[in-house]
Design a protein around this nucleic acid. Structure first.
Length: 198
DNA sequence: GTACTGATATGCT
DNA sequence: GCATATCAGTACC
């Protein structure tokens, strides 16, 4: 399977969000398959950190070149991982909301539960990364990874030739976002157990 | 199974 | 001061 290169991210955000489903996120030997994403599109999107051209130290990376990781702290407690899309200056990104663990399960169990793989129940494995905060916890992604290149050697996304049935729906937990809250900018793999919400 | 609560960094008014 | 791109724990069906 081929590593996704810069040109994959240098495309319309909704297309990238849709096509990231089924792709494999790799970090330090751990691998998960992306099953749920959300698009956040720059200045016109009231759900986006960069709405109205808001530019802060926290969201600076979104304004940068595509194919980089935007990692931020939410509610002061959890991290969320995004892939920056489109050309430099556009402030668009795709939030990775959920994933299925594929490899490096013992490392992920330690990161998430502080337990070894043999002490973790099957139902807990499904819940290792079925949410944006959980995904970052399982893979050990913190603000140290903010701005990192997603086409590097330790941290990247791989292609996956398999085909999945995709469901499109509204985004989650952005009720404050006015007219933007109902945009159909969330995508997930149909009937997959690691999707955070139907 | 659903419902409510608390944790608390960052940026806004 | 107040709100938020969340999660885990508790209480109660």
């Amino acid at each position: 399977m081929e590593k996704l290169d810069r040109s994959f991210y240098l495309r319309p955000t909704l297309l990238v969000a849709r096509e990231l489903l089924g792709k494999v996120l790799h970090k330090d030997g751990m691998e998960v398959m992306i099953v749920e994403t959300e698009a956040y599109i720059g200045p016109l999107d009231r759900g986006c950190h960069a709405y109205n051209h808001r530019r802060t130290p926290k969201n600076e990376v979104m304004y940068g070149p595509p194919g980089h990781a935007y990692v931020y702290l939410i509610y002061g407690l959890y991290h969320c991982l995004n892939a920056v899309t489109e050309e430099e200056g556009k402030a668009c990104a795709v939030l990775l909301r959920g994933a299925q663990p594929l490899a490096g399960l013992s490392d992920m169990c330690l990161n998430r539960f502080g337990k070894s793989l043999s002490d973790v129940a099957k139902t807990e494995i499904v819940q290792l990364a079925n949410g944006p905060g959980k995904l970052c916890m399982a893979m050990g992604i913190t603000r140290e990874w903010n701005g990192k290149d997603l086409t590097g050697d330790r941290f990247f996304l791989r292609d996956n030739p398999d085909h999945f049935e995709v469901v499109t729906s509204r985004r989650i937990n952005i009720d404050y976002a006015g007219e933007s809250k109902d945009y159909p900018w969330r995508f997930y793999i149909k009937d997959h157990p690691c999707v955070s919400r139907k």
